[in-house]
Amino acid sequence: MTNSTIAESTPFNFKPYEESKGEEYMNEAQKAHFRAVLTNWKNDLMREVDRTVDHMRDDAANYPDPNDRASQESEFSLELRTRDRERKLLKKINDALAMIDTDDYGYCESCGIEIGVRRLEARPTADQCIDCKTLDEIREKQMG
């Protein structure tokens, strides 16, 4: 994956939200900001899917040399694994967009407190506050 591909598949190419003093959490401006971030990220991922399909269709060849065939299959396999991870991410993005519509976005699914604008800027699909996420990771580490 090239650096340009990485940059295109992450939501970090946006202007951070400027909070005003005393601003209400998850007001219409914040929701509009995060909707735009998530929608742009989703569109970038969908463009990458289209590029992969085009690349695999255009570059697929039946090389007579087994090493060339193996290299191509390995490349395609890596691309497909990346797209599969992005498919799961697309589901999280769609879930986050749906949460914006129901006014549940930005609140921890576990304890209900505010996740925070800065955490959402770093991870727009976050559905837990940092404390609950940390506890989940500790439990996961202890169990596995």
Rank of each mutant, 00 (worst) to 15 (best):
E75N: 10
T125G: 09
G112L: 08
M99S: 10
R123L: 13
L90P: 00
S4F: 14
P11L: 08
M46K: 04
W41Y: 10
D95E: 06
I115A: 04
P64N: 13
K31M: 13
F14V: 11
R57M: 14
C108R: 11
T125D: 06
A96H: 04
D68Q: 14
V37A: 09
T52W: 11
S110G: 04
L89S: 04
N94F: 06
F34V: 07
V117T: 12
T10F: 13
V53Y: 06
A70N: 07
R69Y: 03
A61N: 14
R119D: 10
A32T: 11
T102P: 00
Y17V: 05
E137F: 04
L89Q: 07
A126P: 04
R57I: 09
G106E: 12
Q30V: 11
D54Y: 09
S20I: 12
R83S: 09
N62D: 14
E23C: 08
T5V: 06
W41L: 08
S74G: 15
N62R: 13
Y17S: 05
Q142N: 13
P64S: 07
C108E: 11
T39C: 05
D104P: 01
S71T: 15
D101F: 00
Q72C: 02
T125R: 03
K42V: 01
Q128G: 03
L120F: 08
D44P: 01
W41Q: 03
D127R: 13
Y25D: 12
D44T: 08
E24D: 10
A122G: 13
T134H: 15
D101N: 13
A29L: 10
M56A: 02
L120G: 07
C108I: 08
Q30G: 06
D95V: 03
P124F: 11
N27L: 03
E28D: 14
P11N: 15
N27F: 05
N27I: 12
F34D: 05
D127Q: 10
D103S: 09
T134N: 07
P64W: 05
L135Y: 11
T10A: 11
R47I: 00
P66T: 09
C132K: 12
A36C: 06
R119M: 05
E23K: 06
I138D: 04
D101T: 02
R35Q: 12
E73K: 05
P124C: 06
T5S: 04
C111V: 07
Y25C: 09
I93S: 01
R69M: 09
V49C: 00
N94D: 12
K133M: 08
E75C: 03
I93F: 02
D59Y: 08
D84I: 01
H33G: 03
C111A: 06
T5P: 00
K92E: 10
E19G: 05
E79M: 14
E109Q: 12
P16G: 05
A32I: 09
M56W: 02
D95A: 12
I93K: 00
E75V: 06
G116M: 08
D95P: 01
